[in-house]
Structures are given as structure tokens and as C-alpha cells.
Design a protein around this nucleic acid. Structure first.
Lengths: 158, 158
DNA sequence: GCAATTAGATGTATTGTACAACGAGTGTGA
DNA sequence: TCACACTCGTTGTACAATACATCTAATTGC
């Protein structure tokens, strides 16, 4: 079974290498896809939209960012009129974040170009492969996620 | 066939979302895996090592970075004694980059902890799934890669 | 030889990020 | 009811990574 073991290791190396390459390219790619939106904030906005209403802390946990980073990004998004903060009546410390109408719209138009890029890039893939790939990514992201799996982050699993 | 189309779109969305989440978490993860190494430089060093000897331009193309960024990163790596620059005798503009002994060693120890993390994270996957996932990632990265597929980058495909 | 090109370096500005300290709100227990 | 611990978010500060523009040196094509 030494061969099988060896193959595992090789696969792991490839995965590691390719994921790294992807991560490093991601910024450039994102910049190309939506030069308008403050670039990082887009991701946060997307997540806020995805889970209709969430707290800054949730964002920080999900993306493994510091509270301060999120705080500033959210402030930027608010300044741009893309998100609103609604104080939680039950707990006055909490601000629930929602996309504004213009936020939703900005997101939609960006999403369109993003989708187009992905569709072009993955156009030749079969539906099965896409589903399988999506599944792998979900599985990958849902495990480990990092150190703070215990923080109750785990927002990845839809 | 409307259903199938719908499923495709859903897979695309998941892929997009999960890849984004991964990319955003990558920095934090990397910081955890090797707090010592200047963090980004690690990636460059790994690539330099992977392709025994390459130019700064290759790195820039592969990771979609600006020449200036790479130039500084490489300078940092050299300062740390992790890479050496050998002027190409044929073309005097070119500097071929090589890991030094200590660079190789630093990489090895880092690689070890990285491998361990991946092995733990993906430990429950079957060899087939790993191979398949690796294959998908290779396929994904080899297409589009970005705008500059034509730059002769294409170093992704092993 | 001279223009166009390429490799790399440097000046400058910006963005994303973390860490630390803080302020305000909430809950608990004596 | 007050003190302590905890949580959420903000602000001060510093730094890392990055891009863009510009520059020099080397190369190639004519």
C-alpha cells in the first residue's frame, strides 16, 4: 500500500500548491471583476446579503478577520450607502447589518460580471463536475476552517 | 433541461462563494502556519524552489503580481539569506533565482507543518477524492488563470 | 548604431490587516 | 445593588502587500 500512500501525498501537495496559487491570484482577479467596489468590502457585502442580516462579529469569524478590520470595512460600506446598521432591540451592543437597496443593486451588477467570468471559465465543465467540485470545496472549507472552528463560526455549511 | 441549467448555476454560485471564502481566509491561515517567514514571501520561495531557478518575471506572471511587488519580496528573501540571485550569463538583464541552503531548509520545515495541517484537514478524504479534487483545482487554475494566460505564464500545469 | 522591448529597481500612495486599548452594554452573583 | 467578567464594536497605531509610474540597464531588430 506504499503506492497509495505516495499518491495521497502527491495529491495533497498539488492541492496545497494550487489552492495557494489561487489565493494569491484572487486579489488581482477580484480587482478585475469589480474595479469600482472597494474590493474587499465586496466580499463582506456579499456575505451580509447572503445571510440576510448579520453582525460584524459573524463576518469576522467567517472570514477570519479581526474585529477592527471588519469594523472599518463596514464603516466604509455604510459611508458608500451600501449597508445599513439596525441596532438590535434586545441587545444594545449589537448592530444588525443589512444591504441597502443600492447595496443589493451594486451587488447584483457585480455578481453578474462575476457569474459571467465563472461561466466562461467553467463553461466546458460538465454539470456533474461542477457539482462535485462545489461539493469538495464545501467539504474543504467546512473542516478545519482554521484554528477557530470552535468559535461557532461554522457559517460555511449552508 | 431547465433543471439542469439551474443546477449548474447553483454549483457555480457555491464554487464562487467557497473559493472566495477560502481566499479571504488564506492570509490568516498562512500566518498561523508559518509565523516566522515573511508570510507572502513564503509562497514565492516555494515557487522558486518548485521550479528550480526562475526569474522574478515568472513569479509575477504566475501569481499575477506587479514586477515591483516581486522585486521587493525577492529583495526581502535575499536579505534573509533564503534566495540567491545568479545573473544569467546569456542575458545580462536576467537574474535567475535559487533557494539557498538555508532557504531550502526553512522551506522544508515550513512545508512540514503545512503538510501536517493539510493532512489533518483532509485526513478523512479518500485517495480518490483527493486525486479528484487536485485534478479539479489544476483544471480550474489552468484555465483563465486571469487575463494574462497569454503571457506564457501557464506554469500551473505541473 | 538607434528605436523598441524587456528585466528589474525605486519613489510614492493606497489598502488591508492586526494588535492594543478603550467605551458601552449585558449578565451574574454576593 | 454594586462589582466583576464578558461581549460587541470603535479608534489609535503600525506594518505588510500591493499597484502605478518612472527610471536604468541590457537586449533585440532593423
Amino acid at each position: 500500500m506504499t503506492g497509495a500512500h505516495r499518491e495521497r501525498e502527491e495529491s495533497l501537495d498539488v492541492i496545497q500548491r494550487e489552492l495557494t496559487a489561487f489565493a494569491r491570484r484572487a486579489r488581482a482577479t477580484a480587482a478585475r471583476l469589480h474595479p469600482d467596489l472597494p474590493l474587499v468590502s465586496y466580499t463582506l457585502l456579499a456575505h451580509i446579503d447572503y445571510r440576510q442580516g448579520c453582525r460584524a462579529t459573524d463576518l469576522a469569524a467567517h472570514y477570519m478577520l479581526d474585529k477592527s478590520t471588519v469594523s472599518r470595512q463596514v464603516a466604509a460600506l455604510e459611508k458608500l450607502g451600501l449597508v445599513e446598521r439596525h441596532p438590535d432591540p434586545n441587545d444594545h451592543r449589537i448592530q444588525v447589518l443589512h444591504p441597502t437597496a443600492s447595496g443589493t443593486q451594486a451587488l447584483a451588477s457585480t455578481q453578474a460580471s462575476r457569474r459571467a467570468a465563472y461561466r466562461e471559465r467553467l463553461g466546458s465543465w460538465t454539470a456533474d463536475d461542477l457539482a462535485q467540485f462545489a461539493d469538495y470545496l464545501l467539504r474543504y472549507n467546512s473542516t478545519g476552517g482554521g484554528a477557530n472552528n470552535s468559535t461557532g463560526d461554522g457559517t460555511n455549511a449552508s
